[in-house]
Design a binder for these strands. Structure first.
Length: 489
RNA sequence: GGUACCGUAGCCAAGUGGUUAGGCGGUGGUCUGCAAAACCAUAGACAGCGGUUCGAAUCCGCUCGGUACCUCCA
């Protein structure tokens, strides 16, 4: 089952052969959500991207430990609220305990991700549960001479680090250029240097979330949780670190610097970054005020959303673009995805009932091989989907007796679709409303009456039945094998 | 301004030196009492200008346009 997988490594800026440090084990760390609000489309993209990676690595035989953190400490609301903790602020607004907010939004995040059929990670550590480790790492960095204390806060000394290491190895930035380009900002005066970043931050009096440390009552800096939890659960060096492209700098760059400063090793072999989802060409983000929550998509309850889109439509839509490309949202594109996934599933139902022949006129082995080949090329899910649609044509042609397949080829085709559609892409058939037995029996009665009318060429009656059913969103389809019906959305 | 990435048909989106990507929509057809649905077939493209090459959407340069990051937001 050994596959020749290639991964685009941001560190190298090219695709590289994937060779885990300790096969068959793979360690993967992905930056998770900050739980102070509902998940929007922008959260779905990294979750689904790395779910695909997680699924495919397992499918081709690796044993993967997937760590995705929950960020629940020490993050500021915006410039206007400088010094205030995001979660702390919301807590006071709503008169709730900070950890209550964390729990509430964590539950909602899980719920949304479950709907999207995103597998839960192997370990989901909370930043707030690793305060001690974060303090220890900050101490270690200080001992190694790469950090300094100022008024109860601890800062990473970027220029010192850059003397013997490369701060910019990931993002391609140069420290001197950054220094000259940095603007005047508030709260910088404590730092020796504007490029320095906090490892520990002293809490102001109104700051709710705080922990004791050797330096002050405060909270950890904004990059150190990932360095700490990655090393704790995956080791000081592990295989894959993922996250959105927006995290590349300064978050991931700083993570590397912290880990190297503390442990003297490059922490990660392959850095993977998914691109953003845009709305009218602009990044979707809470801070931009154009974020549409996943709930809004599922319910259709937002002015930009013309109709409800099911979780699987969203998932399929995201998988139809390569993870490193930007993906522009629109109702038209989403509706195209909705029809596309329906066509795929319909073909899979046809596949289940396909008649076998003595010989095959189509090469199924080749199709299966192409599916692997495409996925091995940096998880090219849109390419895989295109292969599967080529297969849809084959399936339909066999049904129409234009092509034929042997029993064993049909079995192989079925397992190919099951494996790639369900296990790798993580798509699933959604519950339909038409599984109610009473409704089904009533509909059969109605369709029976309509069929009688049609046999008697009483088209006025048959069309009346069809039109009235259409008014209550039930669609009649007259096929060769009799009438079928389904609910319209 | 700096760093990185990107501009592919009406829309979404792969590919990346020479053979139809794919989906939606369009058009034509099959089926049907009619329709719808489904299925089959099909047209239409590589931002612009130069260069390299037998050959470029694909490589190089420039121009134009777009996005992200450069913030004690994670």
């Amino acid at each position: 089952m050994k596959q020749n997988l290639k991964i685009y490594n941001t560190l190298a800026r090219r695709k590289e052969d994937f060779e885990p440090i300790k096969p068959p084990h793979v360690g993967m760390y992905v930056c998770g959500p900050t739980v102070y609000g509902d998940a929007h489309l922008g959260h779905a993209r990294p979750a689904i991207t790395f779910d695909l990676v997680f699924r495919y690595l397992q499918y081709i035989g690796y044993k993967v430990r997937y760590v995705r953190n929950i960020t629940d400490v020490g993050h500021l609301v915006d410039d206007a609220d400088a010094g205030e903790d995001k979660i702390g602020k919301k807590a006071r607004l709503e008169q709730l305990e900070p950890m209550e907010i964390v729990q509430y939004y964590t539950n909602r995040y899980h719920n949304d991700m479950d709907k999207l059929n995103v597998l839960r990670p192997s370990i989901e550590p909370h930043a707030s549960g690793h305060i001690i480790e974060q303090i220890e790492m900050a101490k270690k960095i200080m001992e190694n001479g790469y950090a300094y204390e100022k008024n109860g806060s601890v800062y990473f000394d970027v220029s010192k680090y850059d003397e013997s290491n490369d701060y910019g190895v990931l993002s391609g930035r140069k420290v001197d250029e950054m220094l000259s380009a940095t603007r005047e900002l508030e709260g910088q005066e404590e730092k020796n240097n504007p490029a320095d970043f906090a490892l520990w931050k002293k809490a102001s009096t109104e700051h709710i979330m705080r922990w004791p440390s050797p330096w002050s009552d405060g909270f950890p800096g904004w990059h150190i949780e990932c360095s700490v939890m990655g090393a704790k659960y995956l080791g000081e060096q592990f295989d894959i670190h993922g996250g959105g492209m927006d995290l590349l700098f300064p978050h991931h760059e700083s993570e590397i610097a912290q880990s190297v400063a503390a442990n003297g090793k490059q922490p990660v072999k392959y850095w993977m970054h998914n691109n953003m989802i845009t709305l009218n060409g602009q990044k979707m983000g809470k801070s931009l005020g154009n974020a549409v929550s996943l709930e809004d998509f599922f319910e259709g309850s937002q002015k930009l959303i013309e109709k409800p889109y099911s979780p699987m439509t969203i998932r399929f839509f995201i998988l139809q673009a390569h993870y490193r490309s930007t993906l522009d949202f629109s109702n038209e594109a989403l509706q195209a995805a909705e029809k596309g996934i329906k066509r795929l599933f319909q073909a899979m139902e046809t596949l289940d009932k396909l008649p076998a022949s003595d010989k095959s006129t189509v090469n199924i082995e080749e199709l299966r091989g192409k599916c692997f080949e495409t996925m091995n090329d940096d998880f090219n899910s849109p390419g895989l989907i295109a292969q599967l649609f080529d297969g849809v044509k084959i399936i339909n042609s066999v049904k129409e007796k234009k092509e034929s397949l042997t029993e064993s080829d049909i079995t192989e085709l079925k397992s190919t679709y099951n494996d790639f559609v369900f296990d790798v892409l993580g798509l699933k058939q959604e519950e339909t409303k038409d599984d109610n037995k009473l409704v089904e029996d009533l509909m059969q009665t109605i369709l029976g009456i309509r069929q009688n009318a049609r046999t008697n060429k009483d088209y006025a009656t048959s069309d009346l039945i069809r039109d009235n059913l259409a008014k209550i969103h039930i669609q009649i389809k007259d096929t060769k094998d009799g009438a079928e019906w389904s609910f319209l959305d």
